[in-house]
């Protein structure tokens, strides 16, 4: 469980990082919190030739509320920093609650919000939360910056809509409108495990965003629990049967929607 040899870079700016990532002759990976990438490297499941570590890029270290009221999370911001911010707790309670289900304090102290989005484990909480909250992911690349809606960002298992040489620099979570309600539910084998299956739900005066995760190759955005059974494509593994995931996804979706509506009314 030792990684193969790799080059290590710790650039101090996004431009410098992009320059390193632009070298097509070298297979590079971006290192943020390293909570998934490093174990994969130790198992030699990932064997990058170079790592581009974001730790020195001060311009990516922020957690702020933008002009339009959206929560802007820079690529160096950890999950623990997000949880500690009272503005998040009050303004984005769904995000706050969902992130508390990620790992344990040690994991959240290192793990970053944008890193979890870019890694895209479909059993992970953050991709589902981004989708439920209608987040936008900002990526920087050789051709400049572009914004990708969460709906379009998550492609399949560990695959997102990043082009070669691109880097996630920010996740923007719009402020839920007044009168919104939310719910987050997941079933995990132990505290802090990836979900067997879970649901993140946001009900606003205008729409219902019901996201089921852990039941397909990416989180699924649905409008109503009645759609869940047909929409999911769950897998069998050591921890749960596909049928279990399907049944519990349906159950959790119904419960989450009811709870979100109740909170919206209240």
């Amino acid at each position: 469980m030792k990684p193969a040899a790799f080059d290590y870079h710790a650039p101090e700016s996004v431009d410098e990082a992009l320059e390193l990532l632009a070298d097509e002759a070298v297979e590079s990976r971006v290192l943020a919190g390293g909570q998934s990438l490093v174990p994969m490297m130790n198992f030699r499941l990932a064997v990058p030739e170079a790592l581009v570590d974001l730790r020195r890029i001060e311009e990516l270290r922020y957690l702020r509320i933008g002009a339009d009221g959206a929560l802007e999370v820079g690529a160096r911001t950890t999950q623990a920093e997000l949880l500690r911010d009272p503005a998040v707790t009050t303004g984005w309670p769904l995000l706050h609650d969902g992130v508390t289900h990620i790992g344990h304090p040690q994991v959240r102290s290192r793990g970053t919000v944008c890193g979890s989005l870019a890694h895209h484990d479909p059993h992970g909480e953050l991709p589902a939360l981004a989708l439920a909250l209608g987040a936008t992911i900002t990526v920087a690349g050789p051709a400049g910056r572009r914004q990708i809606a969460a709906e379009d960002f998550f492609v399949s298992f560990y695959e997102v809509a990043l082009e070669p040489g691109e880097l996630v620099v920010e996740a923007r979570f719009p402020a839920p409108p007044a009168g919104s309600g939310w719910s987050f539910r997941e079933i995990a084998r132990r505290h802090g495990d990836f979900a067997l299956v879970g649901v993140a739900c946001l009900v606003t005066p205008a729409q219902t965003r019901l996201v089921v995760f852990g039941a397909a190759e990416r989180p699924l955005l649905l409008a109503d629990p009645s759609e869940v059974a047909a929409a999911v494509r769950p897998l069998d593994d050591l921890h749960a049967s596909a049928e279990y995931r399907r049944q519990v996804a349906v159950l959790l979706a119904g419960e989450a929607l009811a709870e979100a509506r109740e909170r919206a009314d209240g």
């Binding site: 198992f43 344990h104 084998r189 132990r190 505290h191 802090g192 495990d193 990836f194 050591l238 921890h239």
Partner: peptide, 28 residues
């Protein structure tokens, strides 16, 4: 509740890491 060593029919170990071999923690 949690721990099980699982081999498949060909004798491959399926629970060869701590994500699949689940020790209880203080949380449990």
């Amino acid at each position: 509740l949690h721990e099980e060593i699982v081999y498949d029919e060909s004798g491959q170990l399926r629970s060869g890491n701590f994500m699949d071999y689940m020790l209880p923690t203080a949380g449990e």
